[in-house]
């Protein structure tokens, strides 16, 4: 219950116009900080839904796959330059961002993450590693502005943000592949 309140407070904080404006003024902070934080608020808010409606989650998301697919679709949608641009131009899209990322990405992620097992988790991380390398390449290499609202330099920065995040994911995958926790734990 406490978690849900913290999640709602964080969501409220992120939605405050000065905070939202500051975060959206830098392209990479918009995509790599504001959006993950919105997902994180959903992650926290999910607690109350898990407590109140355990059966519907068990029924619809028993193996975690529907939830994780919903999460992937929403997240992939928000990595598109077009969707980010629209969030800045249209009030309704901005609202959709603040609703979809917590509710349709954060909550399913929390519920699915434990259900999909180690293989599922690693597959998701591999998927995002490939996606991030691809998006990084797109944003770094594109000769033109992909978003009307951001300069090319910001786009390149975001591209490198994707690539460095992908590198971290690769390091994590290498670490989990080559270390055997049963030797230590």
């Amino acid at each position: 219950m406490k978690q849900t309140i913290y999640g709602l407070l964080l969501l409220l904080f992120l939605a405050l116009p000065p905070v939202a404006n500051l975060m959206e003024s830098v392209m990479i902070i918009h995509m790599h900080m504001q959006m993950p934080m919105l997902i994180f608020t959903g992650f926290l808010i999910a607690r109350i839904f898990q407590l109140r409606f355990p059966h519907s989650f068990d029924k619809w998301n028993s193996n975690g796959i529907p939830g994780i697919i919903l999460f992937v679709i929403i997240v992939v949608y928000w990595t598109l330059p077009r969707s980010m641009d629209e969030a800045l131009n249209e009030q309704s899209m901005e609202i959709f961002k603040f609703v979809s990322l917590p509710l349709l990405a954060g909550i399913p992620l929390r519920d699915s993450w434990k259900r999909i097992g180690t293989v599922g988790k690693n597959l998701i991380i591999i998927l995002f590693t490939i996606l991030f390398i691809g998006m990084g390449w797109l944003y770094i290499d594109s000769p033109v502005q992909l978003c009307n609202n951001y300069l090319v330099i910001e786009q390149i920065t975001l591209g490198w943000g994707f690539v460095t995040t992908a590198i971290c994911l690769v390091i994590y995958l290498v670490y989990t592949t080559f270390t055997d926790p049963s030797k230590y734990e």
Partner: peptide, 17 residues
């Protein structure tokens, strides 16, 4: 890994610039 992620996030903006 989390430390590296924080470092990557923090340094990518000024270094790219």
């Amino acid at each position: 890994v989390i430390m590296l992620l924080v470092v990557a996030m923090a340094y990518v903006i000024p270094l790219t610039e």
